[in-house]
Structure formats: C-alpha cells, structure tokens
Amino acid sequence: MRETAKLSTDNISSLVATGAGFDLLRYYTLPDFLGKDAPYLLYYMGKNIARETTLTTWDELYEFFQYMGWGELTLIKEKKKEIIFQLKGHIIEKRLNQKLFQVDFRLECGFLAQIIQVITSDTYECVEEKHVKDSMVEITAIKG
C-alpha cells in the first residue's frame, strides 16, 4: 500500500481537474462497473474520502466543497436531530440542468455525513433533495 498525504484545503487547491471528466466517470463508468449498487457505493466512497481529510471545522468543510467543485455548501437550519444544508452555485445549476444523465449527490452526502461526525461527535446520515427549478440541492443530515 502506498503512503499518501491526508487531504486538506491547502493541498487539494493544487489539483487540476474538470467537472466534465469527473461527471463522465461518476455517471457513466462507475454505474457500468457497480450496477444498481452505484449510489450506495458512492455514498461510502464519500465517507472514505472524508476519513482521509484533516477537516475539523464548518469553514474548512465549506472551503473543501468549493475546491472539490462540489458547489457552495451553506448551513441553512439546525434542529435537534437535523442539520439542513443548501448546495448551490454554477456547477450545481449545470449538473441539474444537463440532459445526458440523471445526477445524484450521493458522494457529497457520504462525505458530509462523515465530516459532520468529526465536527459534532454524533453520527448522521445524509439525504438529498434536488430542486431543479431553484438550481439547488437541499441536503438533510439526520442524527442517528
């Protein structure tokens, strides 16, 4: 097994990638390999990526989403057993309005669930709700 550095906003800012290439892998290639289990595995891939980060604060989380090209993540409302986020921005609008494939945000949800656990010390499960008309995604983190 090769040794790799933990992911941080400092070192990921040096990566160069295009969203189109990432989306082709995510929505064409992975489902072909993984079949109907692709959404579940993407969720756990997100959790795994989060475990390889050094993120410990909300601000680092929001910055990480920006650097990864996952959109602008904003905390909208905090309840006793839920935390509601909004994911928006140009990249989200483009993903929601393209006609090539059906998009999901399972990778982002898995990542978010794991980082919330790091920040709050509580276990959360995240689910997304797409709002195509408003060009945004609402992600609800539900305390486990």
Rank of each mutant, 00 (worst) to 15 (best):
R2L: 14
E3P: 10
A5K: 15
K6N: 09
L7K: 04
L7V: 04
S8D: 03
S8Y: 01
I12H: 01
I12F: 00
S14N: 09
V16A: 10
V16C: 10
A17P: 01
A17F: 15
A20P: 06
A20V: 13
A20T: 12
F22E: 07
F22Y: 13
D23E: 12
D23A: 11
L24G: 01
L24H: 10
Y27T: 02
Y27E: 05
Y28W: 11
Y28S: 12
T29S: 13
L30V: 08
P31Q: 03
D32V: 11
D32G: 12
L34H: 04
L34D: 03
G35L: 00
K36R: 11
P39N: 05
L41N: 01
L41Q: 05
L42P: 03
Y44E: 08
Y44Q: 12
M45D: 12
M45S: 14
N48C: 12
N48Q: 12
I49S: 04
A50P: 00
R51M: 13
R51E: 11
E52Y: 13
T53L: 09
T53P: 07
T54Q: 05
L55D: 00
T56P: 04
T57A: 02
L61I: 01
L61R: 00
E63T: 12
E63P: 05
F65S: 03
F65W: 03
Q66G: 12
Y67A: 08
Y67Q: 15
M68F: 11
G69K: 05
G69D: 03
W70G: 03
G71S: 00
E72A: 12
E72V: 11
L73P: 01
T74H: 09
L75A: 06
I76W: 03
I76H: 10
K77F: 04
E78W: 00
K79W: 08
K80W: 07
E82R: 13
E82N: 15
I83E: 06
I83Q: 08
I84A: 09
F85K: 02
Q86R: 15
Q86F: 13
L87F: 06
K88T: 14
K88S: 15
H90G: 12
E93W: 13
K94P: 08
N97P: 07
Q98C: 05
K99L: 10
L100G: 06
F101E: 06
Q102P: 05
Q102C: 07
R106I: 05
R106P: 03
G110V: 03
G110S: 02
F111Q: 00
F111N: 00
L112R: 02
A113V: 06
A113W: 02
Q114V: 04
I115V: 11
I116V: 09
I116G: 02
V118N: 04
I119A: 01
I119Y: 04
T120N: 09
T120M: 08
D122Y: 10
Y124Q: 01
E125K: 14
C126W: 00
V127Q: 12
K130S: 09
K133R: 14
D134P: 09
D134R: 14
S135D: 14
S135M: 08
M136Y: 14
M136K: 15
V137D: 03
E138V: 15
I139K: 01
T140N: 07
A141C: 10
K143D: 02
G144Y: 11
